[in-house]
């Protein structure tokens, strides 16, 4: 039931896209993202997504499409790209060779650092700061994955088509927030809290968010007790919930 192409969109925009937030939240990541001159890596997946990841001044930014890049990574299919995300070697090109130093000494460690926050050990989560950053990064990944599923997965597109236009606030009360902007059945994730949402889904704490992400508590029960609060256009949130169901399928 997992669509390879949708998985590629999630891997690129939601998973690699979280490098943006890693560099903001983790000093070690910001250090790794320091480059003497900006480096832009283009990920170009045939019959799939394309995006450019730019590293500049210790920050990282992802933009859709391939602009002027230092490294152009072409993938023959979504499956090949997904395999790289799962640990296979990237395709070799001239750009890769010329920037091998950055890729090996900075990009690969950055990716591994991201993975450590995304798949933490129970011991790591005992550290309060690590817990907070790890959960925030997971939240960012999920927020972006929602839009990728809404725009690409066949069943996700059905949910999206039934979602009224407007902004959905997807928030953690004492933590990060995202805005899911819906227009004509297409979703766009903005990694910031919105000003004027038509619907709000909010987790009462970052701790609860973690428990939900790790499937340790029942979401329906939390709605019943008010630990997850929902208000506004419930038919927007109803469809968001259906997309969240599918996020679990893709990010499992």
């Amino acid at each position: 039931m997992v669509d390879t192409r949708t998985q590629a969109y999630i891997n690129l925009f939601a998973v690699l896209g979280t490098l943006e937030n890693l560099c903001e939240l983790v000093p070690e990541a910001a250090e790794l993202a320091q480059t003497p001159k900006p480096i832009a890596i283009g990920f170009d997946v045939k019959d799939g997504p394309a995006a450019t990841l730019t590293f500049k001044d210790g920050k990282c930014r992802m933009e859709p499409g391939i602009g002027k890049v230092s490294v152009h990574m072409s993938f023959s299919s979504p499956a090949q790209f997904n395999a790289m995300i799962d640990g296979a070697n990237p395709p070799i090109s001239l750009g890769v060779i010329l920037n091998m130093n950055f890729l090996l000494k900075q990009f690969t460690p950055l990716s591994k650092l991201l993975e450590s926050y995304m798949r933490p050990t129970p011991e790591q989560l005992e550290d309060e700061k690590f817990f907070e950053v790890s959960t925030t990064l997971m939240f960012c990944t999920i927020s972006v994955a929602l839009s990728q599923i809404a725009n690409n997965d066949e069943i996700g597109k059905f949910s999206a088509a039934h979602t009224p236009d407007g902004d959905i606030a997807f928030n953690i009360a004492d933590g990060p927030g995202a805005t899911l902007r819906v227009k004509d059945g297409r979703f766009l994730t903005l990694k910031k809290k919105g000003d004027n949402p038509r619907a709000i889904m909010e987790f009462e704490s970052i701790k609860l968010a973690r428990q939900l992400f790790d499937n340790e508590v029942n979401a329906l029960g939390c709605i019943g007790t008010g630990r997850i609060s929902m208000r506004g256009m419930i038919n927007m949130l109803d469809n968001l919930n259906r997309l969240l169901d599918r996020v679990a399928l893709y990010l499992a």
Binding site: N218, G221, G224, G226, R231
Partner: peptide, 24 residues
């Protein structure tokens, strides 16, 4: 109820599908 019954109260007569906003 939440210890024994899925969601505490499931379906349209429960707080989730019944849109108890706010639940309190």
């Amino acid at each position: 109820a939440q210890q024994l019954i899925p969601g505490g109260i499931y379906g349209h007569q429960g707080p989730a599908e019944g849109c108890y906003i706010p639940a309190s």
